[in-house]
Computed example of a mutant assay.
Amino acid sequence: MPGRELGNSIGVGHITGQEADSRITPKVLRQSLQALEHDGLIVRTVHAGPARHVEYELTSLGRSLLGLLDAARSGAEAHLDELIDAREAASPANRSS
């Protein structure tokens, strides 16, 4: 069904603070990136100077998982309506006491 979303997804590329989904708080984004770095999936590089910025890049381990993640995404897309229906059915508003 067009217009239905399962959740947040961030693709590989350049994302600025203004482009980030407002549903992702800076704290949650920072914690997620730290966990990915700790697990060896990404590397963080800080660039000093007048235009200080931070870049994140996939490691070889992170890149090795892209095929698996793409397969999971494809499977989720193929069953998106079923996944959303299950999520909606399990939401507290739809549960009977």
Rank of each mutant, 00 (worst) to 15 (best):
G3Y: 02
G3A: 01
R4P: 00
R4Q: 13
R4I: 12
E5H: 06
L6I: 14
L6V: 10
G7Q: 05
G7M: 05
G7V: 02
N8T: 07
N8L: 12
I10S: 04
I10N: 00
G11L: 11
V12D: 06
G13W: 09
G13T: 09
H14E: 12
I15W: 15
T16W: 06
T16K: 13
T16E: 11
G17F: 04
Q18P: 01
Q18Y: 02
E19M: 13
E19P: 00
A20D: 12
A20K: 12
D21Q: 04
S22D: 06
S22T: 10
R23E: 10
I24P: 07
I24K: 08
I24H: 04
T25E: 02
P26K: 12
P26T: 05
P26Y: 04
L29D: 05
L29C: 05
L29Q: 12
L29W: 01
R30E: 15
S32M: 15
S32H: 03
S32E: 09
S32K: 07
L33G: 04
L33M: 11
L33Y: 01
Q34L: 15
Q34R: 14
Q34H: 07
Q34Y: 13
A35G: 10
L36E: 08
L36V: 02
E37H: 05
H38K: 15
H38S: 12
H38N: 11
D39C: 06
D39G: 04
D39R: 06
G40K: 10
L41T: 03
L41P: 08
I42V: 12
V43Q: 08
V43A: 13
R44F: 02
R44T: 11
R44V: 13
T45Q: 09
T45L: 03
T45M: 08
T45G: 04
V46S: 02
H47T: 01
H47Q: 03
H47C: 05
H47F: 14
G49E: 07
G49H: 06
P50N: 07
P50M: 04
P50Y: 08
A51L: 09
A51V: 08
R52P: 10
R52V: 08
H53L: 07
H53V: 13
V54C: 09
V54F: 07
E55C: 04
E55W: 03
E55M: 04
E55S: 15
Y56R: 14
E57T: 14
E57K: 06
L58H: 02
L58N: 01
L58F: 13
T59S: 13
S60P: 00
S60Y: 07
L61K: 15
L61Y: 03
L61W: 01
L61S: 13
L61I: 00
G62V: 00
R63G: 01
R63T: 03
R63S: 04
L65M: 14
L65C: 12
L66K: 02
L66Y: 02
G67K: 01
L69H: 09
L69C: 15
